[in-house]
Amino acid sequence: MQKYLPFRDYFAPRTQEEALQLVREQGPAGRVLAGGTDLLIAMREKGLHAECLINIKRIADLGGIGSLPDGGLRIGATTTLYEVETSAAVRRASSVLSEAAGTIGSVQIRNLGTIGGNVANASPAADTTPALLVLDAEMEILSASGTRIVAAERFFTGPGKTVMEQGEILAAIRIPPSAPGTRTAYIKFGPRQAMDIAVVGVAVALKLDGDGSCRDARVALGAVAPTPMRARRAEVALIGAIDERSVEKAAEEACGEAKPISDVRASGSYRRHLVGILLKRAVKLALAREHAAA
């Protein structure tokens, strides 16, 4: 018999207004349920206390994948990781996000877990978040006073911590249209090929000119700092002609920028070593890909 889930009340609001009212009324005792693959386990095994669960999966406005007026993509917070992985629209516009989502857990987990849950949970080792950083994604946060938009890079403030305040709900993730010639890749390293948490995750986005030189670069690292982080010195090193030397330099810079800890999964020094290796692999993989987005 599994351990009893210790919460006392459950709500499944149908509208954003109802959900906002519930999170206001419940205050810190209430937790938003947007999939449950982390939340229920945290309650069952890690002593996370919540008096009340507010399931936001039934709110139509918080789900689905749509386009924005600027040609970007709006992914509703309750879109499952499996949908993010397999959606033709996401694959076309931001394949690195599909790629990252596809590395999470198992099919069963991806059918339950949501992109909003993965982001709001703010695990330093989350797989979608480095991808969101290289895509310059923005978080759409809802409260009684309206919607505010926060850049992905400023959204995370620590392990399990974000800029979201009491009474707010993550409504969607916005992904701006990517420039023509953009190539991306996400590589996750873990001892197993599935059902594992990243020891290190590296996402890259390279904007290439017609002659193949790199006009702009984004490098983001997961599981090597309290939050997912951009490696800006590595990005600078990648600009211009991309050759063995520039990639080597970028790898060195990224190793220096990472701030890994040692834990049960890996030592800090091993993680730092991996950052360099994975960055080189990710750049190589991205360059080998055709740019799909128009």
């Binding site: 449950g36 099919v107 069963q108 059918n111």
Partner: peptide, 18 residues
Amino acid sequence: TVLLGGKAVNACLVLAVE
């Protein structure tokens, strides 16, 4: 594992009310 709405999910991670 069961199918919920045709999708494979872990029944231990779904509340019955969901």
